[in-house]
Amino acid sequence: MAETFVELADTLVLGFDTIDFLHTLTERCVELLHVGAAGILLADQQGVLNLVAASTERARLLELFQLQEDEGPCLDCFDTGRPVGCDDLGAAPQRWPRFAMAARAQGFAAVDAVPMRLREQVIGALNLFRTSPGPPSEDVTLLAQSFANVAAIGILHVRALWQSEMIAEQVQNALDSGVTIQQAKGILTVRLQIDLADALSLLRTHARNSNQLLSDVAQQVIDGRRASST
């Protein structure tokens, strides 16, 4: 028998806290990517990076270190919008000498940072800390970028609910007006014995000449107000 369930309190995404979510995501990242630790820096409205989540206290310290010293992979990654990293924090010379020293003191040997993007904009970076040196496997690189992408989507999901509701309305209007225009085209092809392309140009011309929206003209055709006199 079909069952309907209304009990969604457990799964509603509206109420959850962004930071809590990102923290959980860094933990998942560590599990799935087999890295030592992970952290996320996120830009605020002014474009200033802030630490929002870290899987461990050591990672948290290193993220804060980068922000305070204004040096490190996460910052470069955010600035350039490209993945950056260092496969051996013990080698010389170091791109980020102070950061490398701090990271090694926390027991890390390699680091990667991938950008978090929302549409075209870089909104933050995901940092992965590894305990042994060497290049990351291709899987890990792909997965890390994928994680950064979903983290961004998660933020979109939470932060911009009002915005997505606005988009939702636009999409619905687009669907509605699309349907209306197609129906009006169909009506005109029969009434005027013309083809679909001509029906559309007729609607367009009339919309332009009368300074109306195409979908409004289409609605008038459906309402029968304009009959076949066009």
Partner: peptide, 25 residues
């Protein structure tokens, strides 16, 4: 907890897309 659920699902989507060399869509 809902944030854990979301992280689980997103993590799953990320891993799945990455295993196909695709972006999450």
């Amino acid at each position: 907890m809902s944030s854990e659920r979301l992280a689980k699902v997103l993590g799953y989507l990320a891993a799945d897309a990455a295993s196909h060399g695709a972006e999450v869509s």
